[in-house]
């Protein structure tokens, strides 16, 4: 089972995660170990990259209107910054004593911290992106709730004008998200829900039209037409709700989802 729930996060973190695990194992197996080479240059490169991430991260926080991101991201940035400091300290200690065990421990601690902090940061950013998609899904849910009160052709035209771009956006974003997921089952559920929504949308519009025509002509069967329309709207809402549920899952929740 994949550890990282999106392909982007996996591609960024996975190679280093493996190397850090290897570092820990090698350190344990080697016990006192060989003399460490001078790590000041690679540590300096990490520090520079961390400075840049902190800058970009702070800009992201400032420009975001997502309260959760604004709350969560600073601690992830602090973690990365502290870990970078650990690496610099380890590097300085190793320069004085290439066999220093505390320095090696600090090196491992720093490497792990960079990995975990970056992982938290990416997760935080990813969750914020997911919330944007969910916001669009909820807009569709709001429109679907309005379908029950549409009783003129003019309102139906306006309803369609409002719903269509929103639905297209959801379709585009969920489709792109589905391709990003490493969890096959979650991805397949999103595809299935999206297909259902695409099938149901024109049928719902048709049922709304039938209802309006019956009411306008004062014909029989308006109750049945309303019932049919409501049923279709609720089927679509269920599919959107399921998409929201799956979008919020990460592989860490997979026990619950299955």
């Amino acid at each position: 089972m994949p550890v990282f729930h999106t392909k982007t996060i996996e591609s960024i973190l996975e190679p280093v995660a493996q190397q850090v695990s290897r570092l820990v194992i090698l350190h344990e197996e080697a016990e006192d170990g060989n003399a460490m080479p001078d790590l000041s240059r690679p540590v300096q490169a990490v520090s520079l990259a961390v400075t840049n991430l902190v800058k970009v991260g702070r800009e992201t926080i400032q420009n975001s209107d997502d309260d959760i991101l604004r709350l969560d991201m600073p601690s992830a940035l602090a973690r990365v910054e502290n870990s970078s400091q650990h690496l610099e300290e380890a590097s300085a200690m190793l320069k004085g004593d290439p066999f220093s065990t505390p320095a090696r421990k600090k090196l491992i601690e720093g490497s792990r911290g960079i990995l975990q902090g970056t992982s938290s940061l990416l997760l935080c950013f990813d969750e914020s992106e997911v919330r944007k998609i969910i916001r669009e899904c909820k807009r569709v849910l709001d429109y679907l709730a309005v379908s029950e009160v549409i009783d003129t052709m003019e309102d139906l035209v306006q309803f369609l004008k409002d719903l269509s771009p929103c639905l297209s956006k959801v379709s585009r974003e969920v489709s792109s998200r589905e391709k990003e997921l490493t969890h096959q089952v979650h991805s397949e559920i999103l595809v299935r829900c999206l297909e259902q929504v695409k099938i149901l949308a024109p049928i719902l519009i048709c049922s709304m039209k039938v209802f309006i025509l019956i009411v306008e002509q004062q014909g029989k069967g308006s109750d049945e037409a309303a019932e049919n329309r409501n049923y279709l709207a609720s089927r679509m809402s269920d599919e959107i709700q399921e998409m929201i549920r799956i979008l919020q899952l990460t592989t860490y929740d997979e026990d619950q989802s299955e």
Binding site: P15, Q19, A45
Partner: peptide, 29 residues
């Protein structure tokens, strides 16, 4: 996204660092 690029740059730099540290240990095993 810039944040993804920045995170990727850190991971590349960390990868070089950890590889250098691993290389020294591997000689001993």
């Amino acid at each position: 996204e810039m944040i993804l690029e920045a995170a990727n740059a850190i991971m590349c730099a960390s990868s070089n660092l950890v590889r250098a540290a691993n290389a020294a240990q591997r000689e001993l095993i």
